[in-house]
Design a protein around this nucleic acid. Structure first.
Length: 864
RNA sequence: GGGUGAUUAGCUCAGUUGGCUAGAGCAUCUCGUUUACACCGAGGAGGUCAGAGGUUCGAGUCCUCUAUCACCCACCA
């Protein structure tokens, strides 16, 4: 016997265990009904479950369960990411707290320590993923730092290198002096800040800058070639000017990258520390000098400022120049965008460094018989709909990003990651998945840099499908690996990638890039993008404001994973942000409890003597029809990835149709066998969204096997019978009478069925409507608006109405007028489809009938 | 500076290919605890669908512009 209130924490763990024990998460070998495969976006190995994960898990698990119940061979691979930058930062912070640093520790010890740290906390997130009910195949769990993954990453690097797609060069990069590494353009955020804009005299010019501290080595003045103010100066003309440390020889450079409108239209450049300056310097083959060291301190070029921080040096330079009378003015209200590392919010200091890059423009990929660049392949697979993005409007964002895409800097100066498989010896370079064999004397030195996390993540759709033992074998080529891995053969390209729109560039685009290149296949057929989860007021949940955070680890035990899942899914639309808050979760918890009690009630019913699930009554027929309709809606919702519609339809069926009407009607005329059968069928439909409670009830009511492995239901045969009264009529009459009763004090409407066919369901109507079976002595007679029969009220209750009926009448009159206008319109009769016109006429007739009855009612009452 | 999305009841949202007399839940108001459920049931009130034009027999839905909000992208010193 079930408890009165559903207590999720009593069931969820054991249900999850049952699923796992039954191997339900492992894909079936039978592929006759198709294949569905999806990789889980790997959370950080050291992470903790947050609400964003829950959204992702709710969506993916629902789709996975739906497809599995369809009979498809369904594979959902879980995994975790080594999260290079993030983990690296955690360990460095730990070291700092212990008064040491990674250099003292040494690379080997640092990596070992990090590995141990990750091992210790890796299990946590997996256990938390299980709390949400994720039905992923744990036997295939992957980690981006598995030995096989390491080998695969190296293989791809080597292949790209030999295809000329990876090169090494001095470029200006986004250097983070705090983490002592560079980061990619996509990892940089720009924030607006108010800063001083200084104007300095520079010989005959006036320059403006927000960064005086970079100006020590300035020896070029750049103006626009068309600028009339500077037409007297020639390109490459040399001058001598007074500057920070005395007389300096400078060269005039004319370049059209200069904005004549800005400031004085003249600027000095610092190619080592600014991307635009770097470009100009490259164009004109100018000298580039480093001013700021990689740790953010000033270098020797800064003279007396050497060793100062940027801010100290800035102040000092302004002082010096002011003292010399070269400071013209200061604009304190300058809006200036500064670059910060999106991960740790540290300020980015552009630097020139020797780095590894992926060339996105070199036509080196064979794609459908043509030599294409990575950029072109990335475009073509979306344009020819090989890959479909949901929602579609993200196509535009994607294309815009590719149009502006520059070579991808893939080397990082952190130690926790996939080390670049390149070795150097006396000017020689060796690129392979394994170290050089002739390194007996240890002369070869491996490149110290590691790869951008997204380089390995970009392989995720297929690297997860590679046989782990084969993958770790460095003797096999990439092609052999793919051929010999049966999961890859069966499940790639994966059916779907489900992830957040915030990583469309980082991950989705990089996966397309890396996978098309390395396998010759698209990585996935569809991409479903979800949005951010926000607070009720629409703000981002932030760690700095804990009150705004919904913590799944607190919510799940109290409200249940199902309630949280439903709350996340209902109201969700692809590509849009969604809001989550406790009231919403509680609403769906209430729904779960409703379902629970429906089940409890059906369980308590005495067994049906007839023991068959045949359709007998009006409500039987009605509920079967509604169930069939529900199946159509649910299927359509799943197929169009509209899980919100699925959830809404399912909840309203159970609450409105099944509980409020069908079960209430069954209290008059029961059909327990049918009721149970309907509920079992319903549980299947709801299972993908709310797996736990449906499984619990399924087992309690004696469903066959485990619900997770049940077959998806098909519509029932339901023959319309002329014998039964249409339940819609019953419902309308009941609602009318209830409404009258509610309006009157102590009202008890008596229904005179006369010779109406509704007499056959009189008991049902009276019971549902809660009316009297006592005919009043001196009744006031009201014609029912919804049926052709009399409603009798006691005389003392006849003060009823009139407002009520008159309001109703007004509404009907309005409708009548609108319908009539439409039918009088010749253009309408001319152009509207015939069935629409018939419909309008029927509506008008019905409206007129209602008006007649209402008028009669009002008349009858007026007489009293 | 360029781009994308949003704007429907106090709140959160539905509203398919134009057919609407615009729906649901929460909150609110009235009534109700006879053994599935108060995490409940019944009934009611609440909206000129952001604004202005246009297309159409007909616009919440399609088009144009405007306003507000959100987000993304960009090398203005």
């Amino acid at each position: 016997m079930l408890d009165k209130v559903y207590k999720p924490q009593d069931y969820e763990d054991q249900i999850y265990q049952k699923w796992q024990d039954s191997s339900a998460f492992v894909p079936s070998d039978d592929q006759s009904k198709g294949v569905f495969s999806i990789p889980m976006p790997p959370p950080n190995a050291t992470g903790v479950l947050h609400i964003g994960h829950c959204l992702m898990l709710a969506i993916q698990d629902s789709l996975v369960r739906y497809n599995r119940m369809q009979g498809k061979s369904t594979l959902w691979i879980p995994g975790t990411d080594h999260a290079g930058l993030a983990t690296n930062a955690v360990i460095e912070k730990q070291l700092a707290e212990q008064g040491t640093n990674k250099y003292e520790l040494g690379r080997e010890a640092f990596v070992k320590r990090t590995k141990e740290f990750v091992e210790n906390s890796r299990g946590t997130i997996n256990e938390q993923i299980k709390l949400m009910g994720a039905s992923c195949d744990w036997s295939r769990e992957r980690y981006t730092f598995d030995p096989a993954m390491n080998q695969i990453v190296s293989r791809v690097f080597v292949k790209m290198y030999h295809d000329g797609l990876i090169y090494r060069g001095h470029r200006i990069v986004n250097w983070d002096p705090n983490l002592m590494t560079n980061v990619s353009d996509d990892e940089v955020e720009h924030i607006l800040e108010k800063a001083n804009l200084y104007y300095f005299k520079f010989g005959p010019f006036v320059i403006s800058t927000a960064r005086p501290e970079t100006k020590f080595g300035d020896k070029y003045i750049v103006v626009h070639p068309d600028d009339p103010r500077y037409q007297d100066y020639q390109h490459r003309q040399e001058l001598e000017v007074e500057w920070i440390f005395g007389k300096t020889k400078i060269t005039v450079i004319k370049d059209s990258a200069i904005d004549m409108e800005f400031g004085t239209g003249a600027m000095t450049i610092t190619p080592w520390h600014d991307a635009l300056d770097f470009e100009i310097a490259v164009r004109h083959d100018l000298d580039k000098e480093q001013v700021i060291d990689f740790d953010g301190k000033m270098l020797g070029i800064a003279g007396e400022c050497q060793g100062m921080t940027i801010l100290e040096a800035r102040e000092r330079v302004v002082e010096i120049l002011d003292h010399k009378g070269l400071l013209v003015k200061v604009d304190p209200n300058y809006q200036h965008s500064i670059a910060i590392n999106s991960r740790n919010k540290g300020i980015i200091e552009p630097q020139i460094r020797l780095q590894w890059f992926v060339d996105v423009n070199r036509k080196a990929i064979d794609w459908k018989g043509q030599k294409q660049s990575l950029k072109e392949v990335m475009q073509v697979v979306i344009r020819d709909h090989s890959i479909e993005i949901i929602p579609e409007y993200f196509d535009k964002t994607y294309f815009a990003w590719i149009d502006n895409l520059k070579d991808w800097c893939i080397s990082r100066q952190i130690w926790w990651g996939h080390q670049i498989p390149v070795w150097y010896r006396e000017g020689q370079i060796y690129v392979d998945t394994v170290p050089p064999k002739d390194d007996d004397k240890g002369q070869w030195e491996q490149d110290p840099d590691t790869l951008d996390t997204w380089f390995s993540s970009g392989l995720w759709s297929w690297s997860t499908l590679i046989d782990q033992e084969l993958g770790a074998d460095s003797n096999l080529s990439l092609d052999q690996l793919l051929e010999m891995s049966s999961d890859y053969q069966k499940y790639h390209p994966v059916s779907l990638l489900e992830t957040g729109y915030d990583i469309i560039f980082f991950w989705v685009a990089r996966m397309i890039l890396m996978t098309t290149y390395s396998t010759g296949q698209i990585p996935f057929k569809k991409v479903y993008l979800h949005g951010l989860v926000r607070t009720k007021s629409g703000k981002k949940m932030s760690k700095s404001d804990p009150s705004t955070i919904i913590d799944p680890l607190e919510v799940v035990p109290e409200y249940g994973a199902d309630a949280l899942r439903l709350a996340m899914l209902v109201g969700l639309s692809p590509g849009s942000d969604s809001k989550i808050y406790l009231e919403k979760i509680a609403k769906h918890r209430n729904f779960c409890n409703k379902l629970w009690n429906v089940a409890r009630y059906l369980e308590s019913l005495p067994a049906d003597k007839k023991q068959d699930a045949s359709i007998r009554s009006s409500h039987d027929y009605y509920i079967v029809q509604r169930l069939n309709q529900l199946m159509v809606e649910v299927n359509a919702g799943f197929e169009s990835y509209n899980l919100s519609v699925v959830g809404q339809s399912l909840e309203s069926f159970l609450w409105d149709d099944f509980a409020d009407w069908y079960i209430e009607a069954s209290k008059v005329e029961a059909n327990p066998t049918l009721a149970r059968a309907i509920l079992l069928e319903y549980l299947k439909l709801l299972h993908p969204l709310a797996p736990f409670i449906t499984e619990v009830i399924w087992l309690e009511l004696g469903g066959q096997g485990l619900l997770i492995s049940a077959n998806w239901p098909k519509t029932w045969p339901s023959h319309a019978s002329s014998q039964v009264v249409d339940f819609g009529r019953i419902r309308a009459l009941v609602e009318e009478v209830r409404s009258i009763n509610a309006e009157l004090e102590n009202s008890e409407v008596y229904i005179d069925f006369g010779d109406s066919d509704l007499a056959s369901v009189g008991l049902l109507v009276r019971s549902l409507a809660g009316v009297s079976d006592q005919r009043p002595d001196q009744p006031v007679v009201l014609k029912s608006v919804t049926s052709n029969l009399d409603l009798l009220l006691g005389l003392n209750q006849a003060k009823y109405l009139d407002q009520k009926l008159k309001a109703k009448l007004a509404r009907e009159e309005k409708a009548k007028k609108s319908l009539e206008t439409r039918l009088e319109n010749e253009s309408y009769l001319d152009k509207a489809p015939a069935e629409k016109i018939v419909e309008t006429k029927q509506d008008l007739a019905k409206t007129k009938l209602n008006i007649d009855r209402l008028t009669a009612q009002i008349g009858q009452l007026a007489e009293l």
